[in-house]
Write a protein that binds this DNA or RNA. Structure first.
Length: 292
DNA sequence: TATGAGCGG
């Protein structure tokens, strides 16, 4: 590389320009020239730059392309370089580009976002309509929103109306009136919807043993949260219990679910009794009062 | 196979 003083002195007042130190003045310079490579592989690059004194200098860089480069490629690969361009590359110069950028739109299949349970329940459209559209369709039960081996036709929640919510969510206006209270006034549990108006006083102190449902034939790894998840859609659940063998710590295969409202318990019994859960057929019945 | 643990400040 050679660096020589530029032959033509600039007509600009460099002193003035240097006041703005650090400003990019390269636009004042002649454009870069590339010569070659010639048949001997010699390539020359001529460019102009400002040196530290602010003078314009001409920089000539001479390089020789190693002929060895071709030798590293296979004979066929070298041959391919001389092929005529085709397709979108037809207007490209020979050897200018080896690859083309595709503008084709490629849609990637992504069944569901991992870890987001809310997302996976929201599958747009009718599942029936999605069948046969090619590929596996993630089946999501329309009613209970769970994915898996059950679907709407077999879902115990399938013809379940809106699950009755707790009194906190929906204060029953009629019982409010019955209690003689105004809107938002306290309603004793015995006067709430589903409560037994006949039971008052000391019964209120007792733990809710009402509307107790016994569930048997549970698989060994069914835990209380699983049971709650299974029964919650029918209405407010006040307690869930799975009998555990104290010695082994394993499930004894039965449990109890208590509902706030008796109607909800009844519907749960009707729907879940005989329901296949974890490869077992559940038995769901009214529980007998606990033997003390 | 099978009907629960714990009751206290």
């Amino acid at each position: 590389m050679t660096v020589e003083a530029a032959t033509q002195p600039s007509k600009l007042r460099w002193g003035e320009l240097e006041e703005d130190d650090g400003e990019d003045l390269d636009f004042l310079l002649p454009p870069k020239q590339v010569i070659g490579p010639d048949e001997n592989g010699i390539k020359k690059v001529v460019e102009y730059k400002f040196n530290d004194e602010g003078n314009k200098v001409k920089i000539t860089t001479t390089t020789r392309i190693r002929k060895l480069a071709n030798a590293r490629l296979s004979k066929r690969a070298v041959e391919r370089r001389s092929w005529p361009k085709f397709g979108d590359a037809v207007h490209e110069d020979v050897g200018s580009r080896l690859t083309m950028v595709s503008t084709e739109e490629i849609l990637l299949e992504r069944p569901r976002a991992p870890g987001t349970k809310q997302e996976e329940t929201k599958v747009a459209g009718d599942p029936l309509a999605q069948m046969g559209k090619g590929g596996a369709v993630l089946m999501v039960c329309r009613t209970c929103g769970k994915k898996g081996d059950h679907w709407t036709s077999r879902c115990p929640y399938k013809d379940l109306a809106q699950p009755s919510e707790t009194f906190i969510d929906k204060p029953p206006t009629d019982t409010n009136a019955a209690a003689g209270g105004t809107k938002g006034a306290y309603v004793p549990p015995s006067m709430r919807a589903g409560g037994n108006p006949e039971r008052t006083g000391t019964d209120m102190r007792r733990r809710n043993e009402e509307n107790s449902v016994r569930v048997t034939n549970l698989s060994e790894d069914t835990r209380e949260p699983d049971l709650h998840e299974l029964f919650r859609p029918f209405g407010a659940v006040s307690r869930v219990y799975v009998a555990i063998d104290q010695k082994t710590g394993t499930s004894r295969g039965f449990g109890f679910v208590n509902f706030v409202n008796r109607e909800d318990a009844e519907r749960a019994i009707n729907k879940l009794n005989g329901y296949g859960y974890d490869n077992l057929i559940l038995r769901v019945e009214w529980a007998a009062p606990r033997a003390n």
